[in-house]
């Protein structure tokens, strides 16, 4: 039977349904911008416009110290792109089991395919959004306003991108499971992401918060793995050859550990409960 828990069975099962995974990722991407006039351009426009708004709002408040923040719009965009990938993918994956209830009730499908395809499709659109960052950096460099020295070391952005992917996948599995049993999760998570936005150094620089070393809030900021991820991403983009000075290895190990543990918890929780999903959706 198809439900035996051996690794070989899981692999052959996955191979059988890899077409479905591909179709679902395609579907999510295609449907996201269908019926909108500008279509896929929103992938670029949305983060760009958002960056402009946030720059106008926060630039004068936080952006004056150039030793910490070389170029505020770029600083902002880096943080937001990472943060948006995390929140968009987890929010989508959270609802994925419920939104595919019709098919789950009728056909046997490995259920993890739905949250995983949500994360993957958001990952693809987020990677396309990264082009905005390229354009914005190019704009500042050509206009010679706070130019940014991009070197080959920018390739290290792959490290935080990989970490945030693992983290999002883990959180997605937990949320997708929880949402099946309690729909309240959707409301709670909505509020939580707003809180998370302010706990992550996106619009501000972490050193400028002014929390005393060892105070409660300084720990909260430090323990948020998204802070570390955003920090690493920025170090690669903004600091070019000097990025290693701004790269916090302690934070990196913490983020990797946190993400991997979350992923394991997510999949175990999902697997333990997936047979009960159908009774609740």
């Amino acid at each position: 039977m198809k439900n035996k828990n051996t690794l070989g069975n899981h692999t052959s099962n996955f191979m059988k349904y890899r077409y479905l995974l591909k179709e679902l990722v395609n579907k999510n991407i295609k449907l996201q911008y269908r019926d909108s006039v500008l279509g896929v351009f929103w992938t670029f426009l949305q983060p760009l416009l958002n960056m402009i708004v946030l720059s106008l709002v926060f630039n004068n408040l936080f952006g004056k110290d150039n030793s910490k923040v070389v170029n505020y719009p770029v600083y902002l965009l880096c943080g937001r792109l990472m943060f948006e990938f995390f929140t968009k993918s987890t929010k989508k994956a959270m609802k994925s089991i419920r939104s595919h209830a019709g098919i789950i009730k009728k056909v046997y499908v490995p259920k993890y395919i739905y949250p995983v395809s949500s994360v993957l499709s958001t990952f693809v659109t987020s990677m396309v959004s990264l082009l905005v960052l390229v354009f914005v950096v190019a704009f500042f460099n050509i206009a010679k306003i706070n130019p940014i020295d991009i070197t080959w070391r920018v390739i290290f952005v792959l490290v935080p991108i990989l970490i945030v992917f693992v983290l999002s996948l883990g959180v997605s599995m937990i949320l997708a499971t929880a949402d099946v049993f309690f729909k309240d999760v959707e409301n709670i998570y909505d509020v939580f992401t707003t809180l998370l936005f302010y706990l992550t150094p996106i619009v501000y620089h972490p050193d400028r918060l002014g929390f005393a070393e060892g105070s409660f809030m300084s720990y909260v900021i430090k323990l948020n793995p998204l802070g570390g991820i955003v920090g690493m991403f920025r170090a690669c983009v903004i600091w070019g050859n000097d990025f290693i000075q701004y790269w916090d290895f302690g934070q990196m190990y913490y983020c990797i550990g946190f993400s991997v543990v979350t992923l394991i918890i997510g999949f175990v929780l999902f697997y333990k409960n997936q047979d009960k999903f159908i009774l609740h959706i």
Partner: peptide
């Protein structure tokens, strides 16, 4: 295509 993929 989606339906067919659902059946593998």
């Amino acid at each position: 295509f989606l339906y067919a993929a659902t059946m593998g």
